[in-house]
Amino acid sequence: MSTEQPPAIGAADAFGAPPALVRLDGVARSFPGATTVLALRDVDMVIHQGDYVSIMGPSGSGKSTLLNVLGLLDRPTVGRYELDGVDTAPLKDRDRTRLRGRRLGFVFQAFHLLARRSVLENVALGMTYSGVPRGQRRGRAWRALERVSMTHRASFYPTTLSGGERQRVAVARAVAGEPALLLADEPTGNLDAATSAEVLELLEDLNRSGLAIAVVTHDPEVSAAARRRFAMRDGRLREEP
């Protein structure tokens, strides 16, 4: 078995420390149209390995746009985005996709589970495109389900699960491929308080085991769990003390 290191070319800082996992430098994103929308303005942000950051802000302030940029699902109009110390701007769509599949995990408010696949298959799908050997996918999916305490539902179909259970399955899918950064856009937005707390606990668990997390939320409790908190307003990002 050969090994593959994350690219380590980027600029280590003056003290020789490893580069930040994520570094945004003066990032802006505008949507041209009848009236051009400036969804992100001059955003600077650093996320370290094992970090846990939250982003709060009113609806339409640009939180999802920021997460899409971080997730390589969208490109900044202006500014620089480094992942693992590598500038992502010159990367071709193929390489961005590959990086996304291997280094980033996603959790959505709407879960996005495939209704006609079992829970286990849904989790295994998370590794289909990320370079995990075919023979290992089911075993690793099972272990990911163990991490979210959902093995008892492995053969169920998502439609038979509660919202909280679905989100736990989605989290399992996101972490099964062992990403470096989990991006969660309002993961508790569709859940009641009790199940929100469950998911929150799960995120904290994962973070304790070394996974960096960036979570967009409306929920002050979710935000409070993070180690660093950011506020978003009109496309501007500010770290709260």
Partner: peptide
């Protein structure tokens, strides 16, 4: 971090995904 070199998304995956995509709606 050490990662195994993995399988690319291959013909078998493609076939499997398509058949499952269809089988859901006979």
């Amino acid at each position: 971090m050490i990662r195994p070199r993995g399988d690319r998304f291959g013909a078998r995956d493609l076939f499997g995904e398509s058949v499952r995509g269809l089988a859901g709606r006979p």
